[in-house]
């Protein structure tokens, strides 16, 4: 019988106590603060962030297809489900928790609320970070560039139009 968990070559999950488990220390900047942490060599960045209590980064697929777990690493967006925690050693990471606060929203956050770009909200943190990475690099993008910048972030609720509108609103208010 074809039982998937017994297929030849099927990878069994690694357990605590297994020989190949190792920990290492990493130092990095997280939302403008210095962090030093012990991480397991095969721990995904998204899980590591959640362990640190930063649950704003969402896990939608675990395969790099949906973009819900988007973070910014050294200015570039990345799917944190495909990045291993040790890989951020020496780097600068921005998550949704670093974008704004109740007291001071980032203009993108303000615009997402005003333009109706938020529905279920599960794609929202990743969308915001993709938009931020775009605007950090190009303060005056065209509509097509805005749309391309969020093409790796799936949204099932809004149909994207109001998200693009929100980003465009921030661009217009700056220029």
């Amino acid at each position: 019988m074809d039982v998937p968990w017994k297929k030849p070559g099927a990878k069994l999950p690694v357990l605590e106590g297994d020989k190949n488990m190792s920990k290492q220390t990493i130092n990095f900047m997280l939302n403008s603060q210095k962090v030093s942490a012990q991480v397991e060599s095969d721990s995904r960045l998204v899980d590591f962030l959640h362990e640190m209590g930063l649950t704003g980064t969402k896990l939608g697929c675990g395969e790099g297809d949906c973009g819900a777990c988007t973070v910014i690493i050294d200015g570039q967006t990345a799917n944190s489900c495909l990045v291993l925690a040790p890989q951020i050693d020496g780097k600068e990471v921005t998550t949704i928790e670093g974008l704004g606060s109740y007291e001071q929203l980032h203009p993108l956050q303000e615009a997402f609320i005003e333009e109706g770009a938020v529905q279920c909200g599960f794609c929202t943190p990743g969308m915001l970070l993709s938009a931020k990475a775009l605007l950090d690099e190009n303060s005056n993008p065209k509509r097509e560039e805005i749309i391309r910048s969020i093409s790796g972030n799936l949204c099932r609720c809004t149909g994207y139009t109001k998200i693009a509108n929100a980003i465009e609103k921030v661009v217009r208010s700056k220029s």
């Binding site: 939608g60 697929c61 395969e63 297809d65 949906c66 749309i147 391309r148 969020i150 093409s151 790796g152 972030n153 799936l154 949204c155 099932r156 149909g159 994207y160 139009t161 998200i163 693009a164």
Partner: peptide, 16 residues
Amino acid sequence: SFATYLIPTSMDVPTM
């Protein structure tokens, strides 16, 4: 998966 089951992305959406 979302790699094999394709839903519209921002690039697919027309003017609404």
